[in-house]
Design a protein around this nucleic acid. Structure first.
Length: 570
DNA sequence: CTAGGGTTAG
């Protein structure tokens, strides 16, 4: 209630009118709702507050747009109270947007509470709560709720598939997509047509996995649906082809997008694709064309450009781009950009310059920065810098297995096997698991995963026999295992056999078994490729006349005729 | 037809 004074008496004007049907829209609320919805100028909340200051009563159209725009929990709670105040808390549209609101605030508990109070949750409210769980990383709970739903539609499927992708469960995402398509074949009138959102989530899963065959199939499927490939879908396709090792196709998709349709993201995706593949000249040429077309590069574009300079060893150019990024394009450097610069100088052996970058950055150096400094220092044998960066790495993140591995590598390189052993004990004591090397290949549309020393594959005997044969042939050609990067404190022979069991070698052996001569082999690895495998695969590509494309966690290696596209610089 | 659930690059 609020009151104001007249000459005769205090008249109380109800804040809300008790006899009015509050849910019923009025001309006034209609106008305010549209103001709230207008995306220009004021944020929805401030317009809502003005609406309230004018004592206009919200109706059932007011909250659905307003609530999900809130990201601050205390505000969310008070607006939740408003829905009660106006008796709208039982309205299905409002309830769903309450869930979406708590999801935007990252408050899973409240989101779930609202959901549980709905007597008969419908598809949107289910989807909203599923989204909330996916966003919070609880994809298994999300899936359980998804399975409870009786009326699933494109949105609920897309949301669930996207949730899997966001939580890193890419194979599950593809699996669910297949379920979705199977509905179509099963008849029962229950077919759900995937849309642009579904496809971009699925393409993202293919990209992360490096599953080229799946990705190509999805591309073809999109075409068969008669769906136009717009910038968003085009960008997803460019990204997928780039990350699956097929830059040529990425380029084709890129060229198909209309000239005036191409935005920063489309250009950046193409630039990053060239960068990952070490195709530095084309990458820089793209940048030039982009600028000529009047599209302003952003932070992501420059991550790609600087990466390209790192992979191409173009120190001077990288230097210049970094400066131009700030002066010419007013892009404020992010920590990734500084990381690229440390990498750029470090690899080129200019450790002092790398140090200067670390010292001059405006933010606290993170694990990536020290990791980059460490690998540069290690490459050029700067032991002092190695030690410092290692200490920093472990200080920042004592549970980072990567740090221990790098540290072990350095110690191994120095022959400090006692230190290596000590570290392994430390890792065990602290319960830190080393991330196992893992390689993925796709054969006839089936994904096969191999871990280091894996013997769980049904055809494991044949694989090892094949690998043995391959290695024998390489040895006849003068191959000697390079054990300098092996972690384990073993005798020479032991080290060499540990090397030959690296997951990429197993995966390649499997490809030799399963694919015809001359077929390109594509491997996706979760870690950085080691020196020994690099040498071995170069030789394989010549000896067996095979193109072998390996994606490691950092970039692509195209092996052909005994040479690698990275020019042994990675 | 004033209304709810989800979007592409690092």
């Amino acid at each position: 209630m609020r009151g104001f004074i007249t000459k005769k008496a205090t008249i109380l004007i109800p804040w809300t009118h008790p006899t009015l049907n509050l849910r019923h829209p009025t001309l006034e609320s209609f106008v305010w709702n549209n103001l709230i919805r207008s995306t220009t100028l004021q944020p929805p909340l401030s317009i809502y507050l003005r609406m309230r200051r004018h004592a206009v009563v919200p109706d059932l159209h007011t909250f659905p747009f307003l609530l999900p725009s809130l990201t601050h929990l205390p505000l969310a709670h008070s607006l939740h109270a408003h829905t009660f105040l106006f008796g709208l808390h039982t309205h299905p549209f409002t309830q769903t947007s309450l869930i979406a609101m708590y999801s935007s605030c990252g408050c899973l508990n409240s989101a779930r509470q609202v959901f549980d109070e709905i007597t008969l949750p419908d598809t949107p409210s289910y989807t909203a709560v599923i989204h909330a769980y996916c966003k919070g990383g609880m994809v298994d709970i999300a899936r359980r709720m998804f399975d409870q739903m009786t009326d699933k539609n494109v949105l609920s499927y897309s949301c669930m598939i996207n949730g899997y992708v966001k939580c890193g469960e890419h194979a599950a995402a593809l699996g669910l997509f297949r379920n979705l398509l199977a509905l179509e074949g099963s008849g029962a009138g229950s077919e759900i047509k995937p849309n642009e959102f579904t496809f971009s989530a699925v393409l993202s899963a293919c990209a992360k996995l490096g599953a080229l065959q799946h990705g190509k199939w999805v591309h073809a499927y999109i075409g068969r649906c008669g769906m136009r490939i717009d910038v968003v879908l085009g960008t997803a396709l460019i990204d997928m082809y780039g990350k699956c090792g097929d830059v040529e196709r990425a380029r084709c998709v890129f060229d198909e997008i209309g000239r005036d349709e191409k935005d920063v993201m489309a250009w950046s995706a193409m630039i990053c694709a060239f960068a990952m593949h070490g195709r530095t000249e084309e990458c820089l040429e793209m940048f030039g064309r982009m600028v000529d077309d009047g599209v302003s590069p952003n932070a992501v574009t420059f991550v790609g450009i600087l990466c390209a300079c790192v992979h191409g060893g173009l120190v001077r150019e990288g230097d210049e781009f970094f400066k131009r990024m700030v002066t010419e394009y007013s892009v404020r450097p992010l920590i990734q950009h500084y990381g690229c610069m440390v990498d750029l100088y470090g690899r080129a052996g200019r450790i002092d310059d790398a140090w200067n970058v670390v010292k001059s950055m405006p933010m606290e150096p993170d694990v990536m920065i020290w990791g980059a400094l460490l690998s540069g220092a290690r490459m050029h044998g700067d032991i002092e810098t190695c030690e410092v960066s290692i200490k920093k790495l472990l200080e920042l993140d004592p549970s980072n297995s990567g740090a221990y591995v790098l540290l072990s590598n350095v110690n191994a390189k120095l022959g400090r096997w006692r230190e290596v052993r000590h570290l392994r004990e430390l890792m065990e004591a602290r319960g830190i698991k080393k991330v196992p090397g893992c390689s993925l290949v796709e054969i006839d549309g089936v994904l096969h995963e191999f871990f280091v020393g894996d013997d769980s594959h049904p055809e494991t005997q044949d694989i090892y026999r094949m690998l043995d044969e391959i290695m024998k042939r390489l040895k006849r050609q003068g191959y000697v295992g390079d054990t300098s990067e092996v972690l384990l404190d073993l005798d020479e022979e032991g080290k060499e056999s540990a090397l030959s069991l690296h997951s990429e070698k197993l995966a390649i052996a499997y490809c030799f078994l399963k694919t015809g001569p001359g077929t390109t082999i594509r491997i996706v690895k979760n870690l950085r490729i080691c020196k020994d495998c690099h040498v071995a695969i170069k030789m394989m590509s010549r000896e067996f006349n095979r193109e072998i494309i390996v994606r490691d966690c950092n970039r692509f290696h195209h092996f052909k005729n005994g040479v690698c596209s990275c020019k042994d610089y990675w």
